[in-house]
Amino acid sequence: MTDNINGKVVVITGASSGLGEETARHLARLGAKLVLGARRVDRLRQLAGEINAGEESAIETDVTQRAEVQRLVDHAVQKYGRIDVMLNNAGLMPSSMLERLHVDEWDRMIDVNIKGVLYGIAAALPQMIKQKSGHIINVSSVAGHKVGPGGTVYAATKHAVRAISEGLRQEVKPYNIRTTIISPGAVATELTQTITDPDVAAGMSQVYQQAIPADAFARAVVYAISQPAEVDINEILFRPTSQSY
């Protein structure tokens, strides 16, 4: 079934590390044509070279800037004539107790985790409507299904991703566009490094001792993309087997 990935044009945000990087590696092995976006362009170019995507496929992208996300998608369309998959993966998790009033971190999460997804949709959707085909994959989290102390704002952003994705799913049916939400639990990435609240960081480090490798996420993406065109995998929720919440 993974033959359905060969030749597909896939744009990935947040591709310089973690989930995005591992997904790029998986999709490259399956023959996808990749265009990669992230802020850390040096790491992005190194990745593009390692997977033989070419340095021109590595585009410096800050997802909080709509014009930069549009440039990323436009590059894919100009290079390959289409975009088959938009993976809105960029995200961060500087979780903290609300009483600490880390308002700047709240703003940053809203800008990256919500507006970044919306900007990705805005950039890809017109071309997919024109093609009458496409697949938009948005990354939520287990935190998009439940809320815990210290994770309130992060959970709110990931709940928002699910709401946006479900609304998108309903709206794009006339255009033969597929949508998928992927909600990971504890997966080994750099996500926890953005936590500045020491108490929350300590608790999260305990949770992430059971983290599973990022290729678990990549395989979920591969599964969703590789389905026949008439099959729309709308949501995937997964955790480490040992994760209880």
Rank of each mutant, 00 (worst) to 15 (best):
S165P: 01
H145E: 09
V117Y: 01
G148S: 12
V139F: 03
G167M: 09
P240L: 06
D111T: 04
V11N: 04
G37L: 01
A90W: 00
Q78A: 14
F238M: 08
V35Q: 00
K130D: 15
R29W: 05
S96Q: 07
V200Q: 01
H102G: 07
G14N: 10
A229C: 07
Q227E: 14
D215P: 01
Q65M: 06
L30T: 07
A24W: 05
Q193W: 05
V207Q: 04
E99C: 12
E166Q: 15
E166S: 11
N88T: 01
M1I: 14
V85N: 05
A163P: 00
E56N: 13
I182D: 00
E235G: 06
L118S: 11
G148D: 08
K146V: 13
N52C: 13
M128E: 14
G120Y: 02
M204F: 10
A53D: 03
R100Q: 15
G203S: 02
V35F: 01
I59L: 08
E50F: 03
V103E: 10
Y175A: 15
I164P: 02
L27D: 07
T189S: 11
G7T: 13
Y208D: 10
I181T: 09
R239M: 13
S140H: 06
A123K: 08
K79P: 00
A53N: 04
T192Y: 09
N88A: 07
A32W: 01
L168K: 06
S141I: 13
Q65Y: 06
M128G: 09
L19W: 00
S141M: 09
K158H: 10
R25W: 08
N176H: 15
L98W: 02
G144S: 07
I114S: 09
A53E: 10
I114W: 02
A124R: 14
F238R: 01
A24M: 08
V161D: 02
I51F: 11
G134Q: 12
E105F: 10
E190S: 15
L47F: 08
Q78S: 11
E171Y: 14
V35T: 09
V139Q: 04
D104Y: 03
E60M: 11
L34I: 04
A160S: 12
T180H: 05
Y208K: 07
Q243P: 05
L92R: 02
V35K: 00
D62K: 05
R29F: 06
I236W: 03
V103G: 01
L36T: 07
A229S: 15
D107Q: 13
I136L: 14
A24Q: 10
G151Q: 05
R45V: 14
M1G: 12
L34T: 00
T13R: 04
V11A: 12
P198D: 07
Q243G: 07
K33V: 02
V73Y: 06
I5Q: 04
E105C: 04
R71K: 14
V222M: 04
W106S: 07
V69M: 00
I5S: 01
S95M: 12
T64M: 05
S141V: 13
L30Q: 14
E166H: 11
G49T: 10
Y154R: 08
A216Q: 07
E22D: 07
E21S: 09
I83D: 03
A28M: 05
A53Y: 09
I12E: 06
R108N: 14
